[in-house]
């Protein structure tokens, strides 16, 4: 097709569009959608005993704060990665909070090893937290996918990897409130494991779930 004819065709079919909101507004919207299921889960399951004690434990507070900042910064980076012309350094935003989160969990593991010995490092399966995790994670996951797909698929793997990191970190943050307090090794294996698996799945599915429209693909 001739380029001028293509331009005429595109102009003919150009309907008004809702502008994609700035990154932090989108992050606020995403949290606005993600928080109600978490509140519902806390209301159904009740606040865990450990969550009250968390306020007196500096390490736990640091861990929770870092988890939340990881979720916020990963969501911001995911949204920013879909805006053409935005600085690519946004993609590195979650690295520092993620490192702080992992260090805080690592310190917890070492503390428990000193206090309880090798029993503090026993990992066991806990299927009880699986369904609450789905309940808390489903809405932010759907919201994230819909919201990033409104943007441009400039780096689909990075976008979905960061989006998945945001969801997994938010779920890990939420679980602490209503799920019985776990040993740090359990958090390390299950929560961090979930973050790794979900982020890797996001990266793998990136170009399938988020791509340029079919008509302009090769």
């Amino acid at each position: 097709m001739d380029t001028d004819a293509l331009i005429d065709r595109l102009a003919e079919e150009a309907a008004p569009v809702h502008r994609v909101r700035p990154v932090w507004v989108r992050v606020a919207w995403w949290f606005g959608l993600a928080i109600p299921p978490l509140v519902l889960a806390v209301a159904v399951h009740g606040v865990a005993g450990g969550a009250v004690g968390m306020m007196q434990d500096t390490r736990l507070l640091v861990e929770q704060a870092a988890t939340l900042v990881t979720a916020v910064s990963a969501a911001a980076a995911a949204f920013a990665s879909t805006v053409p012309g935005v600085n690519r350094r946004w993609l590195w935003l979650p690295v520092v909070p993620l490192a702080v989160w992992l260090l805080a969990i690592g310190k917890g593991c070492i503390d428990e090893w000193f206090h309880v010995g090798s029993e503090g490092l026993v990992v066991h399966a806990d299927l009880g937290c699986f369904f609450p995790m789905l309940l808390v994670g489903a809405v932010p996951a759907a919201a994230m996918l819909i919201m990033v797909r409104r943007g441009a698929p400039l780096a689909p793997r990075s976008t979905l990897c960061l989006g998945a990191l945001a969801i997994a970190a938010f779920v890990a943050f939420g679980l602490r409130f209503f799920h019985p307090g776990d040993a740090s090794i359990m958090i390390l294996v299950w929560h961090v494991g979930m973050v790794a698996v979900v982020s890797a799945a996001g990266a793998l599915a990136g170009s399938r779930l988020f791509h340029w429209p079919a008509a302009i693909q090769a």
Partner: peptide, 23 residues
């Protein structure tokens, strides 16, 4: 041009146009 058309909602008038287009 088709790509620009499909993601024209991502342009923020507060930001410069050419970096958006060239990205």
């Amino acid at each position: 041009l088709l790509s620009v058309h499909s993601v024209r909602a991502t342009y923020d008038p507060a930001r410069p146009f050419l970096p958006w287009l060239l990205a």
